[in-house]
């Protein structure tokens, strides 16, 4: 089967912050599974796309959700006029034909679902398809990457120890201010001064993490704000609509954040 639809043609922009590219390359060379940790909107998904492009491999992304079953990942029989036909799930597709399979927000999935990846993530590198009575050995190019937001998920939904310990982990966090500003300039097309202000604003909201906010404004949020400004919105309105309002519903925190943001505006 041809996975060309899953290939990434143009280089997705990614600004490295540390050794994450080298780490991923090394892990890929050894076909070790990788776990990306970090808060929302800090570039995990972008990083995987960038690496798939860099390595020239197709990328199959699955967003995990609460109702996801093992069959949704591995595949199931479907009924056709001639009878039942086996249909590979996205994971099986990647295993069979050699792609990077990216399971986004893996902890959202039910725990019984996540164990299907166990045989793939140790020395065996196989995917047993019980219903199809088949064992699929992983293609040479196959690699598994999962993402996981330690802040977001709850302890009840924590990854099992037996799952966690199979992965090489790369930790993501918000980039340092100058880098973050450069990213905003690049992604939203705003000027550097504005990007600097947006980063300062983000810092204010990140200061409130654990003191009223669960997570501060993400880089993605800042890029959105920058794009709103570029689309012609005044800065304070853009910040209000793309940062303050989405991030909290608590009136006190909202007022405090708005005022702190005022302190960042020139």
């Amino acid at each position: 089967m041809n996975l060309d639809a899953y290939r990434i043609a143009d280089e997705p922009y990614y600004q490295p912050l540390g050794h994450e590219i080298e780490t991923f390359q090394a892990a890929y060379a050894e076909r070790l599974p990788v776990m990306l940790k970090g808060p929302t909107g800090c570039g995990k998904t972008r990083f995987v796309e960038h690496m798939a492009w860099r390595l020239g491999k197709p990328l199959i992304t699955v967003a995990a959700h609460e109702d996801m079953t093992a069959a949704d990942l591995a595949g199931r029989y479907l009924l056709e006029p001639q009878g039942t036909v086996w249909h590979d799930g996205p994971l099986t597709l990647a295993v069979r034909h050699g792609a990077i399979c990216y399971l986004d927000e893996i902890v959202e999935a039910r725990q019984d679902t996540t164990v299907v990846i166990h045989p793939l993530t140790d020395a065996r590198r196989i995917l047993p398809l019980e219903k199809h009575n088949e064992i699929v050995p992983a293609h040479g190019d196959f690699q598994l990457t999962i993402s996981y937001n330690p802040g977001y998920q709850s302890a009840v939904k924590d990854l099992k120890e037996s799952t966690k310990q199979r992965f090489v982990a790369i930790d993501f966090s918000y980039p340092p201010p100058t880098t973050e500003a450069a990213i905003i300039v690049r992604e939203s097309g705003t000027d550097e001064d504005l990007a600097g202000i947006l980063v300062a604003i983000a810092q204010r909201s990140r200061n409130l993490q654990g003191h009223g906010l669960d997570e501060g404004a993400s880089t993605r949020m800042l890029i959105h704000a920058g794009r709103m400004v570029r689309a012609g919105l005044p800065l304070d309105v853009a910040v209000q609509s793309s940062i303050v309002l989405p991030i909290t519903d608590n009136p006190d925190i909202r007022a405090a954040l708005s005022d702190a943001i005022q302190a960042c505006l020139p």
Partner: peptide, 10 residues
């Protein structure tokens, strides 16, 4: 409450 959050944010 608001004051505390404001100063924390700064």
């Amino acid at each position: 409450i608001e004051l505390k959050a404001f100063v924390t944010a700064l």
